[in-house]
Amino acid sequence: MASLITCPHCGVRPKEEFAVRGDASLIRPASSASDAAWHDYVYVRVNPRGRTLEHWHHVAGCRRFLVVERDTVTHEVYSVVDGAAAAREVRR
């Protein structure tokens, strides 16, 4: 269940401490990218039934943005990593 989130900085915390920002699989286009690319980034979502990556903001804790991988049907949480670490991983 998504009731407990293991924050890499704060440990196991109840989900009420977090605010969900949304899809973390999106990559921000370059500022010079086309309107279509920006439209897709801002408005279009894959909305998967199953595994998903989301940004969760630990507002009542370390205030870091985390990337939570979980299942949208079973609510099982697979992994929680710091957002900056996840972004570095993508860039690599």
Partner: peptide, 13 residues
Amino acid sequence: DGYSSYAQRGNLA
């Protein structure tokens, strides 16, 4: 509830 979900049930909180 605030998080994306396809479960037709909610969270106790």
